[in-house]
Design a protein around this nucleic acid. Structure first.
Lengths: 224, 224
DNA sequence: ACAATGCTTCGGCTACCATCGAAGCATGAA
DNA sequence: TTCATGCTTCGATGGTAGCCGAAGCATTGT
């Protein structure tokens, strides 16, 4: 039974870690779940047998990812049901402080800095947010063009929205997703303000000294 | 954790027995699951605490039913995943043939007719499907406007996609979800082609005689 | 009042399975 | 070859949860 697989806390933590769509190695997943590699190995083979995850061998690493969107969808549904009853997950977020501060979520900035960025943009009327819906204002467009050289036509996409609120894993508050969130992250990269950590599979985003400074100028909240 | 609740075989059997939307007594559920009443009692209180089932007291009987369509939807999703790997539950799908033929999944049409509808729409190039992603074609827009008076702007929604593939519980194939799936179901209702069964909580969808005829004209596969 | 039905609570048993230490296998590096 | 890393398999242990018998409430019927 599939549900029994998801039912175990250790396996549920692994699956949650895979929910961002990226593939993780067995050891990374073991650490996510807070168990030893040999226990994780047992769990992962069960998840694979159950068709929930796929395995890709690469050298001496073994990368696991969710099989497809159907699996992710069902997991989201389960999370939704769990959320209604307040029976939320015990394990709240990443322990790693660097991961907590700034990381990649799909293709945009998440973590403390990601939440801070959206907060500031909202405060300064660069975007308007109603629940999970976010709209870019005219003021916001001017701001993006001036400071980050991002134009509206760069953000157009047939199916993906420009702005989207994405619930932050560690902060439990929204950060900015959508084509704008992706474009901004890409721009940070190009400007050498920030870069994904070199260690393969890591989702940590490291800011350079000047990048940190510039980011604070644009989106700082005075707390750092 | 919700998944752990569904994971236990005895509880899973009870939930499956409730999938047709009708309420059953504790003893009936005990029999369905093949366990004694006292064990069933323990399970049922857990399911209730987890928000999966609702209790209605009536005399010395206690009727349990699934909390709402969201729960049913997630259970369908789980059953769908289980079906793919051949790791089927012993009890495969709804026994009730009416439920198997046409039922509500969240807010759209599921069951044999739901799968058939998407099949036909795909065959006639009304939609294009790539894995779980479905796109409405220009031909599809014309078709919807002509035969069901559904216009594209009726389908726009900030967060919900217009088309989405949803894995069907009984058929193990995709049917059409998203705002289009919902709009079509609503239109069937308005046109008096079909209606949800009157018995409270039932997810069965009954087609009228003319409705069946019209539906077959638009989406029939020649097998009926 | 008494009995019958439907369901729950309590206590103890048992089986399953997650977990980890130790050892083994594979890949890659020196 | 030799060593290091990443992961798996084996074996033993322990905790948890499903399970049922017996007894206890509650509701209904006579």
């Amino acid at each position: 039974m599939v549900a029994a697989l998801v039912g175990d806390p250790a396996r549920a933590n692994m699956l949650t870690a895979l929910m961002n769509g990226r593939a993780l190695t067995a050891s990374e997943l073991a650490q996510e779940a807070g168990i030893t590699p040999q226990t994780a190995s047992s769990h992962l083979s069960k998840l694979e047998a159950g068709g929930l995850v796929e395995l890709e061998k690469q050298g001496r690493h073994r990368y696991y990812r969710l099989t497809d969107d159907d699996v992710a969808g069902v997991l989201e549904g389960l999370a939704g049901l769990a959320a209604r009853t307040g029976h939320m997950r015990v394990r709240t977020g990443p322990k790693d402080p660097a991961l907590r501060r700034a990381r990649i979520c799909y293709d945009h900035l998440a973590g403390d800095l990601g939440v801070q960025m959206l907060d500031t943009m909202r405060d300064r009327n660069l975007v308007r947010q109603k629940k999970q819906e976010i709209e870019l204002t005219a003021e916001g467009e001017r701001f993006l063009a001036k400071h980050l050289q991002i134009s509206p036509e760069m953000l157009a996409h047939p199916r993906r929205p420009v702005c989207k609120a994405c619930l932050d894993w560690s902060e439990r508050r929204h950060h900015l997703a959508g084509t704008l969130g992706a474009a901004m992250m890409q721009r940070f990269n190009e400007l050498k303000w920030a870069a994904r950590d070199a260690t393969p599979g890591s989702r940590v985003v490291n800011f350079t000294r000047t990048g940190e400074k510039q980011f604070a100028t644009l989106f700082g909240n005075g707390k750092d």
